[in-house]
Each structure stands twice: as structure tokens, then as C-alpha cells.
Design a protein around this nucleic acid. Structure first.
Lengths: 199, 199
DNA sequence: ATATTTACGCTACCGCTCGTTGCGTAGGAG
DNA sequence: CTCCTACGCAACGAGCGGTAGCGTAAATAT
């Protein structure tokens, strides 16, 4: 968390922050956290290793700063008019981001959080942010009368995203569009949402 | 994978294998993989570090041998007579094993598999073994006419265990008995199993 | 212009851990 | 009794995270 001291001396070069954090994300994606070395990060950033460790206290802090930069992006809540459409949009968006997009390093890092709780916390906030979007969508459905207000929404969210993360982190089976859609249908059926609007 | 060469020299002390692997599992459970050091393992096993590295080529191989020893235990397929009872039994067994029992190190190791694919593969077999039990139980339900033969059983299993692993690996929310039962009910409803046998 | 203060690069270094090497010794097989 | 292997011990090398010191660049203060 480097803070501009606005003092008298030579000011910090902000462009170096950008170069370093950009390379951190690239290296996290290609080598993971354990495979990330400060020497390589310094070399690829065109920066001395000591410069990195003057701005952040540790390797974990640099990685956290990189992740935090991406974590700040908000998840746009879809509003397709139906719960089915909203859930499909959210889940397909998750696949797009975490399997193919810039969030690819998230499942990778989730498999390395065992001895790095700071990064685990950051990843938790990334996922928590997404979960909030599900809560919003479910609240909208309740307001429309599409979903009974008595259902356990946390369980419902777990049922929606649980299979996704299980395949991503454990079995590593492919996640197809059809799989996601079937998952949504099963959960909608479980909570008695009208089965086929087919607008 | 040390093999008795049956040669002429001093035979290997098999008891050392047991002591080492026993301590490996203890240390994996308490410190995780990264926190496991060969020096400490040697000290607690009452063995020289070189002895360990003569039997297995690396730290990862020792850890894998320890996990493999536990992975060989089979999962007993329950047979309560109803699908509901079988699934409850399997899921409560999973909670008992992975949250409170000897399998505690499994979720811990799953968070450290990023740079250790050998261990990831072993953990995969552990979970795969459990998944086979679910397949057996679902097949029994189909044979009893309790479950339609057309349902996507893989999706159904993902819906059953996905929330469990999501809470265990990501959100770390507690997993209560009530939560597990509600999960089972939701999945049974989703796949049109008769809602209340209440035998 | 000069002094001061901070940032940066560079080199060297410490500490920890995995893994190797060499040696002295213990202990079965022939 | 003589090999051959296992074991313990001590030392070492390599890789990486993190620190310290020095020379220099770039800004502000006087």
C-alpha cells in the first residue's frame, strides 16, 4: 500500500507500480504463486528487486496488490426480466471470466492458498463480490413474485455455484454451456420456479 | 515405492516406513504441505533425513506415499432402503471424515496442490472413490424405481457435493447437519423424487 | 547554485529448506 | 569371516525470500 508522502525528495515513479503489478498478474497466471519469484518479477518489470521490496513488505503483499487491483472491478448485475435469464447470465459470465478470461488465475491461486492466508482473504472478497450479485438477482425474483420469499437463498446460491467450483477445483471436468443450463434448470425446479417460460 | 530387493545386504527396516508415513500424515494435518519440513519429519520419526530421501526421491513423493496409504481405504456404500437415507448417510459421512475425522488434511492439501500435481492426482483419486459410492447409490435408486433413469446423474452428484466443497474450500462457512439435509431435499425435489417418505 | 532528502539500481549477504555427497558403522546373506 | 546393503551423521550446494550498504538520480529548500 504505497502512499505518496508528498515530501521533499525524489518522488516515486508511479509507472513502476503499473509495470510491476502488470507483470505480477501475468506471472501469477502463468506460473502460479509458488512459481513466482521476485528475481524474475524484477527482471521482467525492468526494476531492481530491492525496489519491489521497498514498496511492498513481502512477496505475498505484491501478489495481493496485484489481485486487489482486479478485485476492485464490480460485477454488473444482469436484469433480463426473468430469474432464469439472470442466473444463466451470471453463471455463463463466471465461466467466461474464471475459465477463459482474466480471472483464470483465481482457481489457480485458490489451489495455493494453504500457506498464504492474505491471498486467501483477497480471493474470498473476489468471490464474495460475485455472490452479492446472486443475492441481488434473487431479491429481484422475490419482488417479482417469481421466487417464494421463504426459500433458503444461501443454499440456493451454493447449489448454483457449487457444481461450478467443484468441477473447476477438484474433478477438472469441462464446464459446457449445456451443463450450466441444466444446472440452472435443476435448481429452479428444486425451488419451484415455473418450469418453462420460454419467452 | 521402495521394493524389497531381497539381496544379500542388510534388509530395510520396514518399521521405519511405518513410522515415517505415520508422522507424514500427522504433520500434513497439522502444518500442511508447505509447513512440512524433512528435518522435522526426520526428527519426529527418529530417523536421519538421508534415510527418508533414500526411500523416496523427494518430499512430494513422501507426502504422496502417506496420502496414498489413506486413499486405499474404500468407502462403504450405505443401503438404507431409500435414496434419501443413502444420500444423507454419504454426505454426513463426508462431513464427518473431511471436517472432523482423519480426512481433515484433504481440504487442507487441496488448497496446496497448485505446484504439486502428484499430490493433486492422489487427492483426486480419494474423491473419485467417494464419487463411485454416489453412483452406486443412484443406480440402486433407479433399480428401485425411485429415480428416473433419464436424469443426469453426474450433475446430480455435483449438486450434492458441490455446496459441500464450496463451503469447505472457499467460503469456509460451517456445514451443519441441517444444511446437509436441506441440500439433499433440494436435490431430491429437483429430480422429482417423492418428497416425503418419512418411513 | 548548493545542500538536503528521498528513490533507484547494484552487489553482497543472511536464513531457511530441499536435496546430495562422503564417511563411519550396524547388521543380515553367502 | 567376508560382502553388501542400510543407517546415522556431518557437511555442503543451490534456490529463493528478505536485508543492508553504497553510489547515483531527481526532486525540494535555502
Amino acid at each position: 500500500m504505497p502512499e505518496a508522502s508528498a515530501g521533499r525528495g525524489r518522488p516515486r515513479d508511479r509507472a513502476l507500480d503499473d509495470r510491476i503489478l502488470e507483470q505480477v498478474l501475468a506471472l501469477l497466471g502463468s506460473h502460479g504463486y509458488a512459481g513466482l519469484t521476485l528475481d524474475e518479477l524484477a527482471a521482467r518489470s525492468g526494476v531492481a528487486k530491492t525496489t519491489i521490496l521497498r514498496r511492498w513488505p513481502s512477496k505475498a503483499a505484491v501478489a495481493a496488490a496485484g489481485v486487489e487491483r482486479l478485485a476492485l472491478q464490480t460485477v454488473d448485475v444482469p436484469d433480463s426480466g426473468t430469474l432464469r435469464g439472470d442466473l444463466r447470465s451470471l453463471l455463463h459470465g463466471a465461466v467466461e471470466s474464471f475459465v477463459r478470461g482474466r480471472g483464470q488465475f483465481v482457481p489457480r491461486l485458490l489451489r495455493e492458498t494453504g500457506h498464504h492466508p492474505e491471498i486467501a482473504d483477497l480471493l474470498y472478497t473476489v468471490i464474495h463480490t460475485r455472490r452479492q450479485a446472486y443475492r441481488r438477482v434473487l431479491a429481484l425474483a422475490v419482488a417479482r413474485g417469481e421466487l417464494a420469499p421463504t426459500v433458503d437463498q444461501e443454499l440456493m446460491i451454493d447449489l448454483l455455484i457449487g457444481p461450478f467450483w467443484t468441477r473447476l477445483l477438484i474433478t477438472r471436468d469441462p464446464i459446457t454451456e449445456q451443463y450450466v443450463d441444466c444446472n440452472v434448470e435443476a435448481v429452479l425446479t428444486a425451488f419451484s420456479v415455473n418450469p418453462a417460460v420460454t419467452g
